[in-house]
Design a protein around this nucleic acid. Sequence first.
DNA 1: ACTGGATCCTGACTGC
DNA 2: TGCAGTCAGGATCCAG
Length: 272
Amino acid sequence: MPELPEVETTRRSLVADFSGARVDAVVVRDSRLRQPVPADLGQRLCGQTLQVLGRRAKYLLLGFDRDTLIVHLGMSGSLRGVAPDTPVRKHDHIDLVFGAAGQVLRYHDPRRFGLMVWAGERPEQHPLLGALGLEPLADGFTGDWLWRATRARRTPLKQFLMDPGQVVGIGNIYAAEALFRAGLSPLREAGKLTRRTADALCAAIRETLQEALDSGGSTLRDYVNGSGAPGEFQLQLRVYGRTGEPCLRCGTPIRQMRQAQRSTFWCPRCQR
DNA sequence: ACTGGATCCTGACTGC
DNA sequence: TGCAGTCAGGATCCAG
């Protein structure tokens, strides 16, 4: 479900209510996520105060006094603050109860592709975080970097963009949107990017993600931020999910195909 | 090393 | 109504 804009929107919407708050209780209703939820989650977390609510790639990093918790929302996860008396819905797997704040941080994830694990002593060296690529909204992500990173790569551009070992945070929606904006075919061999086109693609990625962030992310089915509000960027999607509809630039019907087990949407005329 | 395919899981939707 | 098939914001593991 959530790509960088959704995860970052979630993070921002939780900061005010939860940073500086102390955990008083933890409820794990189902520990079967991508990896099992640590058995000592409650025992270790109770009494600790949330100091930092950070993000790396699509991972949320909850920095407590002595421990950092890594949370990933997978395809269908959401993390939101709710009042303590909020009825538990199906797939509400975990509650972190912040008593003094009068709030519960509730993790919901129907497909259970998400994750909640300890980061360990050196979070940046955790296996999940250690091999991650560049943050696309950070300064290091430039056309020059993109051009160099793609040299000799035969993989299609879209798959390169979705590889978290290269660039993080770009999922199926934003890869499609960025390639449309840059006028590049998702099938183009990554290694055939020209230096100039790499600049255009880099700019398109940044613009797409920033605009999505400004709109609070995209809600296609069930994404909500930490306050329970949906995103609005789905209203501004230019190709994703528009199969058969006219291209907004040239009117050619948008096509859909399958690429690495994922749907790809593109304009066969505008994107080369 | 790089690349593509299969896989984890539940729910919504389609077509018969 | 039921049932089978397909698809969904992700990432990892495996074989070639």
